[in-house]
Simulated scan of single mutants.
Amino acid sequence: MAFPVTDHTVKTARHTTCYLACGPEAGPLLILCHGWPELSLSWRHQLPTFASLGFRCVAPDMRSYGRSSTYARHQDFAQEEIVQDMLELLAALGRDRAVWIGHDSGSIVVWNLAAHHPDKTVGVANLTIPYIAQGFTLDNLVPLVDRRTYPEAEYPVGQWDYILFYQESFDRACAWFDANTRDVVKVVFRKGKPNGAGKPAPSASVLKVSGWFSGAPCPDLPRDSDIISEQDLETYTSALIRNGFFGATSWYVNYDADNAAYAARAVNDGKLSMPVLFLHAAYDYDCETITSRFAEPMRRDCSNLTEVVVKSGHWMAQEKPAEVNAALVRWLVQKLPDYWPSQPKGRN
């Protein structure tokens, strides 16, 4: 049975979250959290697929994105605030728990939900960003850098140099993104390339060269039709122009002090016992997890972990939706069989 994708809004005293939903309202709940600089639209290949299997699928526009609320202070984009948005969404849906699925910075939100609110978490599945119980901070990321690719003398913080640029030159970073948003979207949403393995990612030199493309205007590249359609491009662009990049970039400003303190308050020292699925992107060189030590803390602190490698770049759910969906289905069947939708009577 085909289900429509519908628009909804949850308003509370502290925040407004807009979201897409698909599937039977009574179905087991999947909540899918996007990353930078995306939208609920990023899960367009997952929503109808899992709805057709009997799940209720919900994809919110995260804080500062799309039609959800955005704010004027950096501290309003701390992880604790964003996690609270998701808890309010869960309550508004009339549910106690969900399977949470995340990508990019949305993965960090999902990891924090699992660590701080395991009672709200049936299981978690994350794409591209592995778990670090001590917090997703530069202090915790830099020791995991692959020094064969990023010699310390040349790349002191490895591929995470761009985070330092955002933190040290925030206004310049936002102004560059806002100056030509459509071209930024076209540059960002591109498929992975196998020949990038072992080479330093562009993100490793952003601070060093004073910005993306050395601070020159964003180039006007052709749209990568394997990732986004012309309609998708216009939707992403218009949403980012409407809100600007202040909120989206402010997520990075909170990675150190605020989010480290939040991680320290996790339940059970941040160790996760629920079923966890992690999807590695084989051709994602900013968030490289195959040859580096980036995934080691996750393996230590997740006791029921399944790992799958997808031959894609960073935008895995959009570049390789069939592979991502298949991995999610296998994991749900194998690790959460009791959460699988009940078959209607009379159906074999």
Rank of each mutant, 00 (worst) to 15 (best):
G346C: 04
S52N: 15
H34S: 09
I82Q: 14
D224F: 03
P28C: 03
P156I: 07
M1T: 13
P118A: 11
Q79S: 14
A261R: 14
R67P: 01
H45V: 04
R147M: 00
P341I: 10
F170H: 11
V209D: 10
A257H: 14
Q167R: 10
N325W: 01
Q318E: 12
K120A: 13
N304W: 02
V187Y: 06
E152M: 09
M62C: 15
P37N: 09
A204K: 02
S105M: 06
Q167I: 07
S68H: 07
G23M: 02
Q159Y: 05
D139S: 15
G247E: 07
G54P: 06
Y162V: 10
H116Q: 10
L279P: 08
W100D: 13
T291R: 15
V209I: 06
A282G: 06
T17Q: 05
W100H: 13
D7T: 15
A317P: 09
R347A: 13
S203C: 03
D301T: 15
G135M: 04
R300S: 11
W315L: 03
S105D: 10
I132R: 05
N268A: 12
A327L: 01
R293F: 01
L47K: 06
A72Y: 03
Q343M: 04
E234M: 09
V109N: 12
I228M: 07
E88D: 15
D183Q: 14
A175M: 05
W111K: 10
R172V: 04
D119H: 15
I31E: 00
Q134F: 00
A317Q: 13
G23D: 07
